[in-house]
Design a binder for these strands. Sequence first.
DNA 1: AAATACTTTCAATTATTTTTGAAAGTTTAG
DNA 2: CTAAACTTTCAAAAATAATTGAAAGTATTT
Lengths: 169, 169
Amino acid sequence: MEYKEARQKFIGTWGSLGSNWGINKTMAQIHALLLISEIPVCTEDIMDELSISRGNANMNIRALIDWGLVHREVVPGERKDFFTAGKDIWKVALQIIRERRRRELEPVMSILSNMKDINASKGEQAKLDEFNKVIEDLDGFTGKVDKMLETLLKSDKNWFQKNIIRLLT
Amino acid sequence: MEYKEARQKFIGTWGSLGSNWGINKTMAQIHALLLISEIPVCTEDIMDELSISRGNANMNIRALIDWGLVHREVVPGERKDFFTAGKDIWKVALQIIRERRRRELEPVMSILSNMKDINASKGEQAKLDEFNKVIEDLDGFTGKVDKMLETLLKSDKNWFQKNIIRLLT
DNA sequence: AAATACTTTCAATTATTTTTGAAAGTTTAG
DNA sequence: CTAAACTTTCAAAAATAATTGAAAGTATTT
């Protein structure tokens, strides 16, 4: 396979993968582009390579920065902004986990814990029992997942590889 | 809080959570509805409770069955189909992991492994080196994640709780 | 202070996904 | 076999999300 073809395929694949994960296609493609670029890249380059508008590029770059996956880079002698993505896949994964935990797990946990004191009118007791059971299970489960992720985010790569992978393999 | 209010809130929350995870709102709401119902539920009930059309209900129930999260249930003396969802949250989570692994991780892994033999024309060597490095890292990483998930899917709840949670806590 | 280089915003457009509902299909009962 | 009960399909409509591009904003240089 030729380099250009592989590059395009990779950017496309990363893009469609992103959409399964709540990240939009363009955002994931920009990330892919930066991942495989050995030098900082400017907005114009991104617009050209992906054939997207300036506004679109700008918005998605900002979203990536907001997710902590991309950083602004100052290139000496240049006025415009340049961007790079962290290349350590382990760190990328942890950063994504960190953001999703904050944006999704935390809200759910707070809603669940507000659902523990519910009144039933007569005739609803069986339904309420089932409801409470599900809520309690879910609350316990998300609590455990949260603790696990918290520990995972604190631990370093080597520790993880040594312990978890060995335990699971 | 009253039971009905809590019930509605839960269904709504589960629904919007779903959309962050590539599962559409209605599908997640139907799942929530079945999760907290102590008896099997028919299509009509779902249509009424969620105010959705028959087609929509049917499509999303089928999707849930396809994901292995919902099962058809035969109610004696009734002709129409009834549905239930598995109540064990641990199993629900494992089932979701199993399906996502199959639908998303596997395709990516096969694409990555097809990207290991690439030719660069002159002047592209540095770019190609960076590209190969990223692909190799990603391939290694997804391989590890895959092994981990595979083991996780095989292990039982108690084993998991004893080992992983203790290790991480 | 005016021109230049660049970034950000956002209303309008375009693309994608979801939902509807009526028609077609299927199964069961009489 | 035929009607009734129920399920599935799918083209069209509605809802939602992403994208454009021109105008407004900001910072830098002359």
